[in-house]
């Protein structure tokens, strides 16, 4: 019984973290800030739920599958947030007013100027993208 209560407490904590993620999604005013809120508590919440399951069924089979789930999440969540962040930064989804200091803008401007020059030069020759 005590194990059940421990599991329930862990799941409750996972629920609290999920709620924190959702509230952050609601309250933060910027796409990048919302990404913080969505991705971070999710990891810890999942970890707690996985520990809760592992407590109840300490068999090797469940533990390995849970390890797989957690490590997949650990690996894929940063990649997904990075891609969303990069897309959001480069396109118009960014509120510059919310940034205190921005050290990336200059590098991105230069990269885009270079790509525009590339496109112009390539447009005079064979173009892969034309139908």
């Amino acid at each position: 019984m005590i194990l059940d209560i421990i599991s329930a407490v862990l799941i409750l904590l996972g629920g609290v973290l999920s709620l924190a993620a959702a509230l952050g999604l609601l309250r933060f005013g910027d796409l990048l800030s919302r990404m913080h809120a969505s991705a971070k508590p999710q990891i810890l919440g999942l970890l707690m739920v996985a520990v809760a399951i592992a407590i109840q069924y300490p068999a090797w089979s469940t533990v390995t599958t849970l390890a797989i789930v957690i490590s997949f999440q650990l690996v894929t969540i940063p990649v997904a947030t990075h891609m969303v962040g990069r897309a959001g930064y480069r396109t118009k989804h960014l509120r510059r007013s919310m940034l205190y200091r921005d050290e990336l803008a200059e590098a991105v401007d230069r990269a885009e100027a270079r790509e525009a020059a590339w496109e112009r030069r390539r447009g005079s020759g064979t173009d892969h993208n034309d139908g």
């Binding site: 996972g14 999920s18 999604l25 999710q42």
Partner: peptide
Amino acid sequence: LDRMIATDVVLASIMCGLGGFMALSGRT
């Protein structure tokens, strides 16, 4: 993109709920 990350949060809640269900109802 906002909608996408909100979908991620919904999925994470579903995963936590499913995990909780598994832990407390005896099925893996």
